[in-house]
Write a protein that binds this DNA or RNA. Sequence first.
DNA 1: TGCGGTACTATGTAAAACATAGTAGTATCT
DNA 2: AGATACTACTATGTTTTACATAGTACCGCA
Lengths: 118, 118
Amino acid sequence: MNIPQNRAVERSQLLKGVLDLAVLAVVAEQDAYGYDVVRKLRTYGLNDVAEASVYGTLRRLFSTGYLSSYVVPSEEGPHRKYYGMTAIGREWLVEQQSQWIDFRNVIDAIIKNDEGVS
Amino acid sequence: MNIPQNRAVERSQLLKGVLDLAVLAVVAEQDAYGYDVVRKLRTYGLNDVAEASVYGTLRRLFSTGYLSSYVVPSEEGPHRKYYGMTAIGREWLVEQQSQWIDFRNVIDAIIKNDEGVS
DNA sequence: TGCGGTACTATGTAAAACATAGTAGTATCT
DNA sequence: AGATACTACTATGTTTTACATAGTACCGCA
């Protein structure tokens, strides 16, 4: 049985489309396994990210070819499925990064424009 | 018949959860009708936003109570359904703005962290 | 008379994050 | 030995929401 995860109802929509980028960026730093990625994302401030979302994203990125994978047995728990970047994954990451920055700037411009309005 | 809108396949996920904010911010500047909001968003840089998305968002925000609405007949075309902010809409906008900024900063931190990595 | 632009509505689809539940291994405490 | 907690992963179904598509209708212009 798992602990019910009833947090993050509002932010969840914001994550759509960006979680891929976030997960890839974490793996790009250093090869990592799912549980590890979850903890790192939470450390960064994505406190509410659900485990299922990260595992699902990793599987999706792997099946698209952006991540490679290898299993490492662990002596302090179950085995770990590590993920690492592929060449096209790295290319895609760069592309996604600049797409994010463009998008972010557009949204910032829209919401900042009514500062002068009462 | 309408022009097929086959653009914006990749960005569409990024908009999730932010379109509400963007639409509200535009209406907060000045009362506006759907078609008008679409054009303004595109001017800001959201070139690919679909009309159906904006109209749907306006209806949703209206039925939640964040927007009020009134119809104005136009002599140069069909009638226009104007939308304006409500009190709780304004509160919600402020809340969403700060939530966006927090979220944006977290994502920026995650993707900027692997700049030093080859 | 038809076309293009304006303005809106309605229905159905797809993607993705999540809730939930389950399997297992190890460690610790009693 | 049994219970509990933490680690680590998988699978299924739900919800939200942007979009595709199609349709209605008004106006101006050639």
